[in-house]
Design a protein around this nucleic acid. Structure first.
Length: 227
DNA sequence: GACCAGGCACATC
DNA sequence: GATGTGCATGGT
């Protein structure tokens, strides 16, 4: 994995420089995003499942409903019937599916780690990721969100906004696979959990406002990015 | 009334 | 390996 040699005229820019420059521009324009908006690691995990293909406002409602009933704990979620959980997370859509997915995750937490997130957190990052991915309903983005925002591992989370922003700026093709974009980014940035945390949040923020399929992007802090 | 939102699993070719 | 489809509510 080599950086392109610096051009004699100083015109060439490495991917590391591009990614670092994007990060700096976004942070300057928008400031720290304070992600993940949650009070506990368990809340991050629940939110990560509920936000699948769903806007965050709906997730907040659902989490509030769970909290209001005092069910935001591993034992309580484990005891809650799946139908009752489905009712609570209804605002997020796919509610039967998501209730089942939450139960799948809670089940392995209880059975394999005594319902103790800290015990699960003793696994090295690679093994932790594999274990999460083996749960039905936990895909790469959900697993990586949990790794980064609940377990604070230096893993870059790729999502629809990441792809939108990066492909618009020609760093990858619009149809790039998850792992392709993730390894591109992680291969060119040092593994810094705090930076990955902030960077992903900033990409979501800018992606909601810009980088859509429009010819120009007035007001975007990333424009112009590349020559 | 479309269209979108911080995906994923599964079937089919 | 690539592509298509079901899952579903709520806001704009």
């Amino acid at each position: 994995m080599h950086e392109p040699p610096a051009a004699t005229g100083g015109a060439e820019i490495s991917l590391t420089d591009v990614l670092t420059g994007m990060y700096r521009r976004l942070l300057t324009a928008y400031g720290p995003q304070h992600w993940w908006p949650a009070d506990s690691a368990l809340e991050v995990i629940v939110g990560a499942v509920l936000t699948q293909n769903t806007n965050w406002q709906a997730v907040e409602k659902a989490i509030a409903r769970i909290k209001d009933r005092g069910l935001l704990s591993i034992p309580a979620l484990h005891e809650t019937p799946v139908d009752e959980l489905a009712h609570l997370v209804r605002p997020t859509g796919y509610f039967r599916l998501k209730a089942r997915r939450l139960k799948n995750l809670i089940e392995i937490l209880v059975v394999e780690y005594s319902g103790d997130l800290e015990r699960m957190g003793k696994l090295p990052t690679g093994q932790l990721r594999d274990r999460l991915l083996a749960v039905n309903g936990i895909g790469p983005e959900t697993a990586d969100s949990i790794l980064l925002y609940a377990f604070r591992r230096p893993v870059f989370v790729v999502d629809a906004y990441t792809l939108r922003v990066m492909s618009r700026h020609r760093l990858v093709l619009p149809k790039a696979a998850y792992g392709e974009l993730q390894s591109l980014i992680m291969g060119h940035l040092p593994p810094d959990e705090a930076v990955f945390n902030e960077y992903h949040a900033l990409l979501v923020h800018v992606g909601k406002r810009h980088c859509r399929r429009t010819p120009s992007c007035p007001g975007c802090p990333l424009e112009p990015l590349l020559p």
